[in-house]
């Protein structure tokens, strides 16, 4: 008899007697529940206090007036009506939409293209993958500084190169300092920074496609182009959906690069929703209104995510 035998206390009662129960159902259920909650608690408590709580608080603040120090006042829908009179909000809203409309498809195409190139058997493949991914992990502050220098309108290497290619100095783009070019600069930067990440996601997707599909297509006589359109792209459907949702959410949340490269300017040409939230909160200390803009942002993100879900469901 090993130790294993000793665990359940066995009675020596004769068979005819009703067998005994060692643990009651309630005791066991409770134990199981406590164990499960003990797993979740460390993370969930932190999450509830520092994330879930503030989110609910934010929703409530949207209907309040508060400057952070004086007592909170109930504001009803006043913050909401203010949105319509706020010209900066209007610019921020449209700039966010424009940014999203350009960044999502362009990043999608670039990262997919890159993934397909780097999924082939080429020499130094892992090295190239690392290079493509590196901008994503690089410090935003550092690369924004470099970007600002490279694209300096007066003496940056990019404009110097363009000038040396024979472009008239008056036609050289003003990049971040120019109303018409500032958004272009931000969009280029964003694509450069994040395409490596989505490339990795596409790589994972590509590796999930069965090689048999391509072998079958080879035997059917498909060329590379046909294989791409008939096999690769449809098989990547779920990945593309995921990437586009992530990109859209990320685009609506854009803030950091704008803060570091253009500060929302010149004028309001790169002012986006999150930047407006930041300004209203930490510059104007109009916390209620800031939360209202945040609420609008949240509703937008939620709506777009739901619409994207619906569209994929219909397609499938």
């Amino acid at each position: 008899m090993t130790a294993a035998r000793a665990v359940a206390p066995k009675t020596t009662a004769p068979k005819s007697i009703v067998p005994k129960t060692a643990v009651t159902k309630r005791q066991r259920k409770r134990r199981e529940m406590l164990v499960a909650y003990s797993f979740i608690a460390p993370n969930f408590i932190g999450f509830a206090v520092f994330t879930l709580g503030p989110i609910l608080f934010a929703f409530a603040l949207a209907f309040m007036h508060w400057d952070g120090s004086n007592p909170i006042e109930f504001a009803g829908l006043e913050n909401f009506w203010k949105l319509f009179e706020d010209r900066a909000f209007k610019s921020a809203f449209w700039n966010t939409i424009v940014y999203t409309i350009f960044v999502v498809p362009l990043t999608l195409v670039c990262s997919l293209g890159l993934a397909i190139l780097l999924n082939q058997k080429i020499f130094g493949r892992n090295f190239f993958r690392t290079i493509a991914f590196f901008p994503y992990v690089a410090s935003l502050v550092a690369v924004a500084v470099v970007w600002n220098m490279l694209f300096n309108p007066d003496f940056g290497p990019v404009n110097m190169a363009l000038y040396n290619m024979g472009i008239d100095p008056s036609d050289l783009p003003g990049w971040a300092a120019d109303r018409d070019w500032a958004m272009v600069t931000i969009i280029m930067f964003s694509i450069w920074k994040s395409m490596g990440y989505f490339m990795v996601i596409y790589l994972a997707g590509l590796q999930g496609i069965s090689a048999e599909l391509y072998e079958a297509a080879d035997i059917d006589g498909a060329n590379s182009w046909q294989k791409f359109w008939r096999i690769t792209l449809p098989q990547l459907g779920p990945t593309t959906f995921f990437v586009s949702v992530m990109l859209t959410i990320q685009s609506f949340k854009v803030f950091d690069q704008i803060f570091l490269i253009t500060q929302g300017g010149p004028g309001t040409s790169t002012l986006v929703l999150v930047y407006h939230i930041y300004n209203e909160a930490f510059i104007s200390w109009d916390l209620g209104y800031s939360s209202m803009v945040a609420l609008v942002l949240f509703v937008l993100v939620l709506t777009i995510t739901i619409v994207q879900f619906r569209l994929t469901e219909e397609r499938d």
Binding site: L52, P54, F57, Y278, S291, A294, L302
Partner: peptide
Amino acid sequence: LAYIATIAMPWQVYMVPQFLM
């Protein structure tokens, strides 16, 4: 679900109340 719902939530939406808290 409570976790999932907050993944799509931009941090900036609640960074102000979080800061005040």
